[in-house]
């Protein structure tokens, strides 16, 4: 069958295959990339076109949502009863812990008042759900169902029940994108809980592995050591679990020890996550005076890997 040629000449018609046009478009693409890389216009464009993007995300996430709902609908009675019992136990346990925590926190509060500490770190959190879509298999980003109009800001830490998951890198009006700590371009300042050794945990691109590439060779780090956030850099609050050391070896140069850790948070399983509402106070050198408020900028905790 002969090709049905349209009567009108189309906007992007044939004859477009000249090398000149190719060069023009390639140059255009490169210019856009360079401009975007330097100035980050994509963010502006994305928030501008969020009316279209967000529904697309919801639609793309719909099959997974439907599958989950379907699974829930046909789950057997026994399975549900079992799950119910497990959850009850977990709740009881959590309640006990909470009570103890409440007592401790109360005591803490009293001590703080005694010490006249003005800024008590009340941690406000909000619950968010992951929208189940995959932006790129080789970058560890997740999409949350809360955005700027729900008060989400870029930089907010993301937690689940067991540890730090990552941080918000982009807030659209009704959704936001967060980078997980396992992303190869993410780094988080940590301390070893047992010894207080400070270091930095980098993401590796594998969902179950973090990397601590430069620990002094004489440092006291053992397999099984817990890593918690150090609070340095001011992005993540101090004292939240990040992971557990799994393996220690010498790096290639022999100058440092390199450790591998497993993230504490269930990065690939969590469905509901917590967003820390109040950003932690920056910990840095004290501001010298009221006249120089910009004198204590803290280093950004997320630095691109060389």
């Amino acid at each position: 069958m002969a090709l049905a040629r349209p009567e009108k000449v189309q906007l992007f018609a044939e004859g477009a295959v000249s090398t000149l046009r190719l060069i023009v478009y390639l140059t255009l693409a490169m210019i856009i990339m360079v401009i975007d890389y330097r100035a980050g216009y994509l963010q502006a464009l994305r928030s501008f076109s969020s009316r279209v993007i967000e529904p697309a995300y919801r639609i793309a996430g719909f099959p997974a949502e439907a599958a989950r709902a379907g699974r829930l609908a046909i789950a057997t009675q026994q399975h549900l009863a079992e799950e119910n019992r497990e959850l009850r136990e977990a709740l009881l346990l959590a309640q006990v812990r909470l009570n103890r925590m409440a007592a401790l926190s109360e005591q803490n509060e009293r001590l703080k008042v005694l010490l006249d500490v003005q800024n008590n770190l009340g941690l406000g959190v909000r619950l968010a759900r992951l929208i189940d879509i995959d932006l790129d298999p080789f970058r560890h980003r997740v999409v949350l169902d809360a955005g700027a109009s729900q008060g989400v800001q870029v930089g907010q830490p993301l937690l689940d029940a067991t540890g730090i998951m990552g941080q918000v890198v982009e807030a659209l009006p009704n959704t936001s994108v967060a980078m997980l700590i396992s992303d190869p371009t993410h780094a988080i300042p940590v301390t070893v809980e047992r010894t207080g050794l400070r270091t930095i945990a980098y993401g590796t691109g594998a969902i179950d592995r973090l990397q601590l590439p430069n620990i002094p060779i004489s440092a006291d780090v053992k397999v099984g050591d817990r890593l918690v956030t150090s609070g340095l850099g001011g992005r993540f609050p101090a004292g939240f679990p990040v992971g557990e050391v799994r393996e220690i070896r010498n790096d290639e140069s022999g100058m440092f020890a390199a450790a591998t850790a497993r993230p504490a948070a269930a990065l690939d399983r969590s469905g509901d996550v917590l967003l820390l509402q109040d950003l932690p106070q920056p910990m840095g050198p004290p501001v010298p005076g009221e006249t120089a408020p910009a004198a204590a900028p803290t280093p950004a905790p997320v630095e691109p890997r060389p």
């Binding site: 189309q10 906007l11 992007f12 018609a13 044939e14 477009a16 295959v17 046009r21 190719l22 478009y25 255009l28 693409a29 490169m30 210019i31 856009i32 990339m33 975007d36 890389y37 216009y41 994509l42 464009l45 994305r46 076109s49 993007i53 697309a56 932006l135 790129d136 970058r139 980003r141 982009e170 994108v177």
Partner: peptide, 22 residues
């Protein structure tokens, strides 16, 4: 045409939130 491929690619970039133009 190349122009349409270019526009589709831009749309894909905006959706994926990667480097614009990739």
């Amino acid at each position: 045409g190349l122009g349409l491929a270019f526009l589709l690619g831009l749309a894909g970039d905006v959706l994926a939130g990667e480097l614009l133009g990739e």
